[in-house]
Write a protein that binds this DNA or RNA. Structure first.
Length: 613
DNA sequence: TAGACACCGCATTATA
DNA sequence: TATAATGCGT
DNA sequence: GTCTA
């Protein structure tokens, strides 16, 4: 079919991205023309009667903003820097002649409905970016005009952006950068969780520790690529929030590779040739980074994502829901609640994600993990002292700070999961009655019995009616997710470990505070008077699968993915249940043997951080 | 240049 | 009503 | 986003 016959298209901001290539081909294959240069327009001279109406401008969706359900494109550096000289001229042409602009994804829609549909819903208006100051752009003087205009208007915003960049203000990005850079405790003898009761103290020397580790392990380079590493990290985070998992991963892998590269990068060409996971696109970004010292549009891009980031920092909210709310101009959880009470009524666990939003975005000092473990172990002993438990996750990897606490339960020679689950459920209910466990995130019949009241009061607090049909799982699951809080009566409560850190802390918007658990502890920022609530995951594993299970729950996620990729390349499959070949179990009990069978050296948990092979 | 990029569990929603 | 797909979490 | 077959 040739639905684009007689039509010409200009792609903005450029044609170089591979995803744009797809659209280019779609257009050509369906009879359309692509305008690349100015002379393409004059060659295909306009119809006397219709002017340039056969020309349509297509804009890469990621440069668009949705304002009152209308698409807008900000004419800023982010956009203009992506255009080469030819494109800039075409851009001027589009503006001068009021050429229609639509988002490029319309192309696939048109093909689906078999006609070109242009209406107020997909037409794009060009606006000056309210949050950005335009630098002079060397090649075009028409852009310079807008520069001066903008600079005078938005001086305040510029100042704020500058502040954000220097990292001194509490912007959302600061927590992004901190994500996995927590210190590593260097006590090589105490690798395996609680078996050794030697507990490294979390103190001010963590920074020191971190440094010494870096120097010795050769993993990080500290000679000049920090800006690039930071930039790649930000790009990765931005695409995670956008829900583009694979592009995010591309940047993440590039970041890790650059971290390992032992020299200062002198040119984009050098980077692309010598460093894995750096291709044409990142090389181009390196070039501008080397030339100008910054990547235009990055701050703006992360600003555009800030609402989504706010939402997806809440337990139960992922990229899709965040995108939905963001595109509807929803600014707070409260607004979302007002518009979609049913979502909160049904997915009631989001309410607890909201309630503990600030707490669950805090890191847990190692020493506190140990205290949690003591409480749980004590209670478990009373119920069934043949069941053992161990902390996995970042704790087993010896991090000084952990995001959550993953506890693995197992029983010698026991492969019956439901047997263990029954005890685990009892344990959880006892701990709930003792007010240690504060909330559950899924229900079983018995947990619902004790916890339903709390759900109802929380629904009430949110101002929505009760949903009498809460789904209750009947099967005995291998996992239990919950939130728990230490009581301050526990000895050695050290407030110095829990001082509020505005640099890192993720804060609820003021209009969302009323649902927060910490709302009564007034808003003045001083040292905490009690422990924050923590995310704790209980996992059960079969005795025969203990090796694979520990490997899985120890992580890191990045490490798991890499090892599993190696398994795939050798025609095997690695999961939490074991290492398989053609669905035949090779090994699941012995952690070390899994490494052997994969023909890779055993790696101690503290070293299971990033790319290793 | 298309397809892979780790894998599985649970709850919910879409589809046949 | 059974099965597939989606969303979120690990 | 990059890598690979």
């Amino acid at each position: 079919m040739a639905i684009f016959k007689g039509r010409s298209f200009i792609l903005f901001p450029n044609n170089e991205v591979s995803s744009i290539n797809i659209f280019e081909n779609l257009i050509k294959n369906n009879g359309g023309k692509i305008i690349e240069y100015e002379h393409d327009i004059t060659n295909a001279s306009p119809d006397i009667n219709y002017g340039y109406s056969h020309i349509i401008g297509l804009v890469n969706d990621s440069y668009l903003t949705l304002n009152n359900n209308k698409y807008e494109i900000y004419e800023n550096n982010l956009l203009l820097n992506e255009m080469d000289l030819n494109k800039r001229k075409l851009w001027e042409f589009v503006k001068k002649n009021n050429i229609t602009l639509v988002n490029i994804s319309s192309v696939s829609f048109w093909l689906k409905v078999k006609k070109i549909l242009i209406n107020q819903d997909n037409i794009i208006t060009i606006t000056k970016d309210p949050g950005l100051h335009l630098e002079e752009i060397s090649t075009s003087d028409s852009c310079n005009q807008s520069t001066s205009e903008c600079e005078t208007d938005i001086g305040d915003i510029i100042n704020e952006l500058v502040k954000c960049n220097s990292g001194s203000s509490k912007n959302l990005n600061s927590n992004l950068n901190n994500a996995d850079n927590v210190g590593e405790v260097s006590s090589s003898g105490t690798l395996h969780g609680l078996k050794n009761e030697v507990i490294p103290q979390y103190n001010n020397e963590i920074e020191e520790d971190n440094k010494s580790i870096s120097a010795s392990s050769l993993a990080r380079n500290t000679n000049g690529n920090e800006l690039l590493i930071k930039t790649l990290d930000k790009l990765s985070k931005i695409h995670t929030i956008r829900g583009d998992e694979f592009r995010s991963r591309g940047y993440k892998l590039a970041k890790i590779s650059v971290s390992k590269y032992p020299h200062k990068i002198k040119s984009a060409k050098e980077a692309q040739e010598k460093i894995p996971h750096i291709g044409a696109s990142i090389a181009k970004k390196i070039e501008t980074l080397l030339k100008t010292g910054k990547l235009p549009g990055l701050e703006i891009a992360s600003k555009l994502e800030s609402r989504k980031e706010y939402f997806s920092s809440c337990y139960g909210i992922g990229p899709v829901t965040a995108e939905n709310w963001d595109s509807l101009q929803i600014n707070s959880l409260n607004e979302a609640l007002k518009r979609f009470p049913k979502i909160f009524q049904h997915d009631w666990s989001i309410l607890f994600g909201w309630k503990y939003y600030e707490d669950w975005n805090k890191k847990i000092p190692r020493s506190e993990c140990v205290k949690h473990m003591q409480i749980i172990k004590e209670e478990l002993k009373l119920l069934d002292d043949s069941i053992e438990c161990e902390i996995q996750g970042s704790f087993r990897r010896n991090r000084a700070l952990c995001g959550d606490i993953d506890i693995l339960f197992y029983k010698k020679e026991c492969d019956d999961i439901s047997d263990l689950y029954v005890v685990l459920e009892m344990l959880a209910i006892k701990l709930y009655k003792k007010k240690y466990i504060k909330c559950f995130l899924q229900l079983s019949k018995n947990i619902n019995l004790v916890f339903d009241n709390e759900i109802q009061t929380t629904l009430q607090k949110a101002g929505i009616s009760n949903n009498e049909f809460r789904s209750i799982s009947l099967t005995n699951r291998p996992k239990l997710f919950l939130g728990a809080k230490l009581s301050t009566t526990i000895p050695e409560f050290d407030t110095s470990l829990y001082t509020i850190n505005p640099e890192i802390d993720v804060k609820l918007h003021s209009e969302d505070k009323y649902m927060s658990s910490s709302v009564q502890a007034n808003s003045v920022s001083h040292a905490l008077e009690e422990y924050p609530c923590r995310r704790i995951d209980f996992f059960i594993c079969k005795w025969s699968e203990i090796g694979a299970s520990k490997l899985h729950y120890t992580g890191s996620g990045e490490f798991n993915r890499e090892v599993r990729k190696i398994a795939i390349s050798k025609g095997m499959k690695l999961t939490q249940h074991g290492l398989y070949q053609n669905d035949i179990l090779l090994e699941s009990f012995n952690e070390k043997r899994i490494f052997d069978l994969l023909d890779i050296p055993f790696i101690e948990p503290p070293d299971r951080q990033e790319l290793k092979f």
